[in-house]
């Protein structure tokens, strides 16, 4: 089974952890994840500047490790990311900003990638809210 997963909430939301556990369970069950799409506040997951309190789980770091380890297609919505100050080197140069906080394994791209993933996958599963 091919899954596409869209995440609408930031890493500190419980729904982000649920999405991660779902994604891990999907791979463990022998399924394929065609793409992970991070939209709206979900783009904060990809920011390199997040620092989780020491007594809390660092879900953003767990996402990064998960995407890297399984070489998944982790796409971050470019419009949602720019308005939230999540920029890769190219965008920081384009808009003359001093900070870069997005790098591999994340990729900035458009909403079309969510549509494309929904077409390619058997199931699109969205996570967001509390």
């Amino acid at each position: 089974m091919k899954f596409a997963i869209a995440l609408f909430s930031a890493a500190h939301a419980p729904s982000s952890r649920r999405a991660l556990l779902f994604a891990q369970a999907a791979l463990a069950g022998g399924h394929e994840i065609v793409r992970l799409f991070f939209y709206q506040d979900g783009v904060y997951t990809a920011s390199n500047n997040l620092v989780a309190p020491q007594d809390e789980q660092d879900i953003a770091r767990q996402w990064r490790a998960f995407v890297s380890q399984h070489q998944l297609d982790g796409v971050v919505c470019i419009a949602a990311a720019l308005r939230r100050g999540v920029l890769n080197n190219e965008e920081a140069t384009r808009y003359q900003r001093s900070a870069v906080n997005l790098d591999a394994p994340w990729a900035l791209s458009g909403l079309g990638q969510l549509h494309d993933a929904a077409q390619a996958a058997d199931r699109l599963i969205c996570f967001g809210g509390p």
């Binding site: 779902f22 369970a25 969205c126 967001g128 809210g129």
Partner: peptide, 20 residues
């Protein structure tokens, strides 16, 4: 259910609609 059950449930139904 556990998460493996959640994955299976998403397969058993044609669509998954999350009330975001």
């Amino acid at each position: 259910l556990d998460y493996a059950g959640f994955v299976q449930l998403s397969i058993d139904y044609d669509k998954v609609n999350t009330w975001l």
